[in-house]
Design a protein around this nucleic acid. Structure first.
Lengths: 147, 147
DNA sequence: ATGAAATATTTCGACATCGAAATAAATGAG
DNA sequence: CTCATTTATTTCGATGTCGAAATATTTCAT
């Protein structure tokens, strides 16, 4: 059973899916370029950004935020720690937890990179009118991504 | 400059971007699960699917289709070849090119997996009405992804 | 014809990522 | 209190991915 023989509903869903992936892919790649100028991966940026806006978080909380595995979060934080952008601290109240803090260096970096990131994303999406952005956002909300 | 202090346009663009990534991520992960039951990665599936619908293609053409690097395509095709799902053939007219063909085994596999894939994707997106799917698709078209 | 530039693929080295097993600490039922 | 269970993180082994350099082939200007 090839594409053309599928029920119409499935054909539409597939087309939508492919376009969604390509749009996300294309956008990610462009964003990644500007982060690479500061030697940050997307995940590293995501961690710095979360800490910047939410304050120190334990690794479990960061896993939720960046949507990656526990195993990977360890690696990401390792990378940031090696560059002295964050530091780990065992929680006093629950010593299983490791709380991650921005260092001064990390704060300075994310304070520099975040506004540029916002600018790049806005430029990347400027082909959508404000109205279309809103329509788009409300459709995306239907995906019920857990916050 | 933190999120709340950004110009409204940038805040909106960022929210949209984050939602787009999360939606794509969530959908990809679910799709990947059903492919994993046949030991296929997303990229391997994408290659089989392209060959299934378009016939034999050279690797450069496949790179366009699956949006991965040349280096990676070699690995992906290696993996498929090891499982005897595809075979490589040097082009006679241009011996720099390597044309990739589905084997009978590969044909049988993709003929089995593709309809299930279509079904899974349709189920995954069924929370969107047909009308909303169309709206969504037309917004995504504005991203002008090169076909 | 010939050698330089262009094109197609592979190799290499480095990371990012994941699932599962291992480790460490907290909790809770008895 | 104590040990089994749950929770948080790390380690391990494997794979996917990329950019850049290397290799092989074709094309094109002279």
């Amino acid at each position: 059973m090839k594409f053309n023989q599928l029920p119409k509903e499935q054909r539409k869903a597939l087309s939508l899916y492919v376009k969604l992936m390509r749009a996300a892919n294309k956008t990610t790649n462009r964003i990644h370029r500007h982060l690479a100028t500061d030697n940050l991966t997307l995940s590293q940026f995501a961690v710095l950004e979360a800490l910047y806006h939410l304050g120190p978080l334990c690794q479990g909380e960061l896993v939720q935020k960046i949507l990656k595995s526990n195993a990977n979060l360890t690696t990401v934080v390792d990378g940031l720690e090696k560059k002295s952008l964050v530091r780990r601290e065992r929680s006093d109240t629950d010593r299983r937890r490791v709380t991650v803090h921005l260092t001064d260096l990390g704060k300075a970096l994310i304070a520099k990179v975040f506004p540029r990131h916002a600018k790049v994303v806005a430029e990347e999406l400027q082909f959508l009118s404000e109205k279309k952005k809103e329509e788009f956002t409300s459709l995306l909300k239907l995906f019920r991504i857990e916050e």
